Amino acid sequence: MKEIAREISVLKRRILEYADSKGIKKYEIYQNTGISNGVLSQKGGLSEDNVMRFLSHYSDLSPEWLLTGKGAMLRGQSAPEVAPPPSEPAFPGFIEEIKSLSVKVGRLEAENEHLRTAIEAKQREIEAQQREIEAQRREIEARQKEIEDKERQIKLMRIDHLKKEEPDIHTQYLEPAHAPLPPENPVESAELLKSQPQEALFTP
């Protein structure tokens, strides 16, 4: 990567310079950004779409340095004391394009942050709804168990009530086989035995 052709544009040379300082290979840039293979080695400039792709993935690279060569290469890095030699502009009006791209990058970052916050809020809302549904399910199960217990109690009460109202079949419908015998008088029984002949007593 240190052999940079003179014919390629300033933007490509700066991208390759950044990649060389970070130890990034060309094929990694193509894979990570979606830029077509071989673009960085071709003559000519770099499209706005490819610049946006590169800046979106390698967010530590300073858009100002990439587009103008001013300031530090990396964001949050102090600018070198000796400014690099001025380089020719990539094409007329490119400074305005730089500013527009920087604004777009900032807007995209803000939109991504907003979407991330919205997604996290929605996830928390879904989790809260799931907890509420689970609580309602447990409450329904408890109510069903309570209803079942009451139904069993009612059933037992009905059985007890029917048992109390049911007449005693043995006492209601069972008649005595014969009239009860009068109580036996020992004296009368003895006199009756004396009055009967002895043969009658042993008559089968």
Rank of each mutant, 00 (worst) to 15 (best):
L201D: 06
E48R: 07
L174G: 10
G71S: 08
P182C: 15
S9Q: 05
Q129F: 14
L192I: 14
V103A: 02
Q196W: 08
Y58Q: 09
R6F: 12
G44F: 03
A177G: 05
S47M: 09
L67N: 02
K26W: 02
D168W: 04
H170P: 06
K26C: 15
I24E: 00
S195Y: 10
I154E: 00
P197K: 12
V51D: 00
Y18Q: 03
G106Q: 07
K150Y: 07
D168R: 14
L181Q: 13
H178A: 11
M157V: 02
S62I: 02
G44R: 06
G69K: 14
S62A: 08
S21L: 03
E134S: 11
A19I: 00
S87W: 13
E125Q: 02
G106W: 10
Q136W: 11
R107Q: 13
N50A: 06
I147H: 05
V51L: 00
K12V: 06
L55C: 10
T68L: 02
G69F: 13
A118F: 03
A128C: 09
G23M: 00
E141W: 09
E113S: 15
G106I: 11
H161T: 15
E191A: 09
A79Q: 14
G106R: 08
S21T: 11
L108G: 05
P167S: 03
M52P: 05
S9K: 10
D149G: 10
K104G: 04
E188P: 05
Q31T: 08
I154W: 01
E166R: 08
L162M: 07
R13Q: 09
S195N: 12
E97D: 15
E48I: 03
P89Q: 02
E165H: 03
I4P: 06
E120K: 13
E28K: 05
E28F: 00
A190C: 14
A190I: 12
S47G: 15
S102D: 00
I133E: 11
I133G: 06
D20M: 09
F54T: 04
A110H: 14
L16M: 08
M52D: 08
R116S: 05
D49L: 09
I8H: 00
H114F: 01
I95T: 14
R13P: 02
M52R: 07
R137D: 14
L61K: 00
L11H: 03
E166A: 13
E199A: 13
L55A: 06
S59K: 07
E48D: 00
N50H: 04
P89T: 03
I147E: 03
E127Q: 02
E148R: 12
Q172I: 14
I35H: 04
L108C: 07
I4N: 05
E28L: 03
I98R: 09
I126R: 07
S195G: 05
R116F: 15
Y18T: 02
I169E: 07
P167I: 00
D60H: 13
E120Y: 04
S56K: 01
S36N: 15
F54E: 00
Y58N: 08
S102V: 10
K155V: 02
